[in-house]
Structures are given as C-alpha cells and as structure tokens.
Design a protein around this nucleic acid. Structure first.
Lengths: 167, 167
DNA sequence: ATCAGTTACTTCGAATTCGAAGCAACTTGG
DNA sequence: CCAAGTTGCTTCGAATTCGAAGTAACTGAT
C-alpha cells in the first residue's frame, strides 16, 4: 500500500479535531440529559439501547463490550449496576456454559422508552439541527465505510494474551 | 422553530450511532498508541497539542478545560501530572491574579514532536484511509457548522452556580 | 481421555473522573 | 471604600475505569 502519507494535511487535521470536538460536546450534553431524566450514564444507556434493538432483547457480555467499545471488567461492573436496578437480568448461556446472556427486563424497556425522547431531542438539536436531510445522507455515506474499515482493522496489538512483548 | 421533529428518522439514528462508534474506536486506538509511545493519556496529548498550537505556547486553565471539554477539577489533576513530568509550567497570570497560565516547556515540545508522527499515522490509517481527499473536504464541510452550532448552543442548564434546582 | 491453548467472565488494585464545596481575586453598585 | 455577586482554580470524597491476574469452560490434537 503505497499511499499512507506520513503526515496529515491541514484539512485532515482540522477535520479530525472537529470530529473529536463534536463528539465530545455531544456526549457531554447527552450524558447530562440522561442523568437528569433517568439516572443513567452514557454507557448504561448504550447498553440498554443495544439490548432493546436485539430481536431477543439479549446479548452476550462480550458482544456488548465489543459493541459499545468498553473493557470487559468495566462491562461486568456496569451490568452489575443495571442488574441491581432491575433493568437487566443475567443468565448463563444454554449452549456455552461460560457465556452470560444479558437480557432486558420490562423495567429496563420502560426506562429506555422514558429516556429516549429526550435523548433524541438533544441529539437532534445539537447534531442534526445544522444539517439538511441531504447533508445527513452524505455524512452517513462517509461514516459507514470508516466504521467498517475500523471494525475490520485489527487493533495494533492483536496478541492473544500471551506474547505481549511486542517485537 | 417549526422543524424540530420529535424523533430521529432511521438515517439520522444510524448516522448518530456510527459517529459514536467511529470516534470510540478511534479514541481507543489512539489512546493505546499514545500510551505506548509516550506514556500520555489522550487528554494529556490534547493539552500538549493545544499548547503547542498556541502562538505563545500557553493558555489559561479555564480555556484549556473548555477547549478539550473537560471538568475544571479534572484539568487541575492532569496539569498537575504534566507539571510533575516537567512537560508544562504553571505560573500566575500577570493581569489577572486568579488565573494560572500553563506553558509548554521544551521537554513538552520534544515529547509532543516525538509522539505526533505515530499519532498521525494511526489517525490516517483508521479514519482517513477509506476516504478520498474529496470525501475529507466534504466531511470537513459538514462537521464545521455542527461544531460551531454546538459551541454556540448554551449547555442546557446555563446556570451560574446558584439556582441549581431546575424547575 | 488428557493436555495445551483459547475464550468468557469476574475480582482486584491503582489511576482517573466528576461535582460540590471552599478560597482568593476581580467587578459593580451604593 | 464596602458589600454582594461572579469568576478562576484547587481540594475533597465518591464513583467509575482499566489492565492484570484468576477461574471455569470449550477446542483440538494426540
């Protein structure tokens, strides 16, 4: 691959910074709304949303962690909190004894429904307000390949727990 | 304002999710590179980068916190770490006795220079690899107005420390 | 069936993060 | 000048976050 320029041009750099800034601000605003309206952190909301999206309303721990880009141990902690609130249930997986299946409860679904409108409103007001429908389509068309590329690219140290000493 | 639809259409929703996912993955990869190559966290890198960009190589604490979207107390902590490493210096501001001016040291500038190429490489390889130069320009054109809009929109509770009780 | 290697999850300790509260320095109106 | 209000930063405590290490379950080869 001969075209990996060693340095970013100014447009790229500015775009990168704007991207980071935009999502930081968005996250911040959303986080506040979620805490006020439902006592949820952003990760917790993401988890509930993912479970709500799933046809079965459930996912394995690992898939959840990968989905929201979170550490395994952090996920254990967060799911523990959600379970204590009665929003999800943990159960061993039928086919794989090691796996834990996390499932959304009715209470979880309710809370999700209660929180979603406000969430959507914040996102709409901050992120989409300055964008036309065409803009949004364009943006979607740009982000999707990036997302796929990132998901496909193995993390720089794709080591299997042993052999950590890079070289 | 008659056009704030109460709900996001599927394209918007997908775009929003992709945006979050893309930046989460990017951040993760970048964080790892920074830690390995220079022992810096992402915030720390952002701070050094911002100081490096400034004509004077310095900024007030508050401006730094706002710039990187970080809490004041968190910034105090991080700048403390950077100072302990000799990467920045804190000095009271001449005109305003309350303000602290944070300035990049030579060591800080060196470390920044040492870390930047790898950083840029990761960002290029993950974020920009699937995008043509035209795509990047388009993306920049979309993000800029969003950024400006977000910066202009006051946080939902623009209260002045007192009168927190919302109603 | 047994052993080595891998995968799924949890526990643990250390580091980071935030908001609330506190303190000092500015500003404004009298 | 003085009091009330605001702004800039730090300290404090509680909650979250991660990676390393540990345990249990699966896989494949012999």
């Amino acid at each position: 691959m001969p075209d990996s320029p060693p340095s970013l041009d100014p447009v790229q750099l500015g775009t990168y910074f704007d991207l980071i800034e935009v999502t930081s601000l968005l996250r911040h605003a959303v986080e506040q709304q979620l805490r006020e309206s439902g006592g949820l952190s952003y990760v917790q909301f993401q988890l509930l949303a993912r479970l709500g999206d799933a046809p079965t309303g459930s996912h394995r721990m690992t898939d959840l962690a990968d989905g929201v880009v979170y550490s395994r141990s952090g996920l254990t902690y967060q799911v523990g909190l959600l379970e204590k609130e009665g929003l999800v249930v943990r159960a061993p997986s039928p086919d794989d004894e090691r796996s834990i299946t996390v499932t959304l409860t009715d209470a979880g679904r309710e809370l999700l429904a209660k929180v979603l409108p406000g969430h959507v409103e914040v996102v709409g007001g901050l992120l989409f307000a300055p964008l036309s429908p065409d803009d949004v389509r364009t943006l979607a068309g740009l982000l999707r390949p990036v997302r796929d590329h990132m998901r496909a690219t193995p993390p720089r140290s794709a080591v299997s727990r042993r052999r950590k000493g890079g070289a």
